[in-house]
Each structure stands twice: as C-alpha cells, then as structure tokens.
Simulated assay, not measured.
Amino acid sequence: MTGPKSELHHYLRAGRDALLWKLDGLGEYDIRRPLTPTGTNLLGLVKHLAGCESGYFGTVFGRPCPEPMPWLTEDAEPNADMWATADETRAEIVGLYRRVCAHSDATIEALSLESMGRVPHWPEGKNEVTLHRVLVHMTAETHRHAGHADIVRELVDGAAGMVAGNDNLAPGDAAWWSDYRARVESAATEAARRSS
C-alpha cells in the first residue's frame, strides 16, 4: 500500500472479502433465511451492498453501472434490496456484486481522492462529496454489513471469525466457549439484579 487512497481501497476490499466468505459452505436456505426480526440474511447483505457500491462509485461520479437493479427503482417495494427472491440465484447475486465491485475499483483507480461527485439522495447542501469521503463511507458501510454477516453466520451454524485463515477469536474449544458464555450471562444477570 502506498498512500491514503491505496490504504482505503485495501480496507474496502478486505470488507468485501469478509462478507463473501460468510456464504462459503452454506446451502441456499441458510444464505437466504432471515435470522433477525428485521429479516437480516446473508445473501440480502450482498445484494444490498451491490446496490450501494453501484450508486456511490457509479452514479455519484457520473459513471453509472451498466447493470440494471430493479430493486433500486423508486417504485420498488421497501427493502427489496435486502433479500433475494427465489428466482435470484446465489451465482447471480454474487456475480453482480463482483462486477459492481470491479466497476467501483475502476472508478477508484480513475479518480483522485479530491474528485467531486453528488449523492442524489442526500440533502441539498450536504450532497457534494469527494471520492475520499465516498471511500470512507463505503468502507464503513461494507464493514458494518460484514459484521452483520458475522453474527448471522454464527447463528446459522456456529461458524465465527474475521477472515479465512485468521478467525481473530480467543483460542478455546467448545467447552471453553460454553463456559465463557455462561460467565458473560452470569455477569449480565448479576448486573441486572444489582440495578433493580
């Protein structure tokens, strides 16, 4: 890495990789099933971020993605970008995300951090942005959703960790984690008891 743009781009790519890694080894049901009251699911997070990147690194800088995304139109149902229909395959959604990311990467490479763009859905007077700001915004957005994916994946099958080959977790077997969780639960129960 050399320079702020390369560093920001590196962290954006790392977030993308972490997100996609959370789908590895899971079947169709598990990548789609909603595991929170608001319906958060793994493939939906990928679909959502494809739309985000296409807008922020495409439309904002006058470099629209060539791929249609009907779930982003004004007449689309609310949250249509947050889940995959039965007709939308994993390969289609992941492939779209990879193509959008490549389009984003081309925008990042072509422009300077000071290049100006306009976010159409941000309030007037706050919608003029630099590539630097968009890179920070999309890196934060991607890592936020990669964190959601961490939790959803753990709920699906217990798999946890940051990236392939580096789980970034404390060492311990199933018994150690069970004991650890019990201690955390005990502390929460005791704190609640003391506060009442």
Rank of each mutant, 00 (worst) to 15 (best):
C65N: 09
A14I: 15
H145L: 07
K47Q: 02
T59L: 11
H48R: 02
A170S: 14
E7C: 15
R13S: 08
R63M: 09
D81L: 05
G3L: 14
E7A: 14
R90M: 10
A182V: 04
S115W: 06
E128D: 09
T107S: 15
G125T: 02
T59F: 07
H10I: 13
S112E: 08
V119N: 05
C52F: 12
I151N: 01
D30G: 04
R16N: 10
H137A: 07
H103Y: 06
N79P: 03
W177P: 05
E92A: 15
S104C: 06
A170E: 13
F57A: 05
G62I: 05
K47S: 06
R33V: 13
K5S: 07
D173V: 14
C65L: 12
R16K: 14
A159F: 05
G55N: 11
H143I: 03
R193H: 13
K22M: 03
S115V: 09
L96M: 07
L19K: 01
A50N: 06
L42E: 00
G117K: 02
L49S: 00
M116L: 13
W21I: 03
D24A: 15
S54W: 01
R193A: 14
M1V: 13
E28V: 04
E114C: 09
A174L: 11
V94R: 04
A191N: 15
M1C: 15
A192C: 15
R33K: 09
R193L: 06
Y11E: 07
A149G: 01
A149F: 00
C52E: 13
L131V: 09
D150P: 02
V60Q: 08
A191L: 15
A174D: 12
C101L: 10
R13I: 05
S195M: 12
V119E: 03
P37S: 14
T73D: 07
D17G: 13
R181N: 13
V94Q: 00
G117W: 00
R90I: 06
T89R: 04
L135D: 03
T40S: 04
W71T: 11
A80R: 03
N79C: 12
S6T: 11
W122A: 12
V60Y: 03
P68E: 08
S54T: 04
L19Y: 01
G58C: 05
G117Y: 01
T36D: 00
S196V: 14
H143Y: 10
E7R: 15
H9P: 04
A182K: 11
H103W: 08
M1K: 14
E77S: 13
L43M: 03
V184S: 11
L135C: 06
L43V: 02
G158C: 04
S178A: 12
D75H: 15
H10R: 14
N127P: 06
R63V: 03
T85R: 09
L135W: 03
G117L: 03
R33P: 01
T139N: 04
E141P: 04
L49Q: 00
S195H: 08
H145V: 02
V60T: 13
N79K: 11
G125R: 04
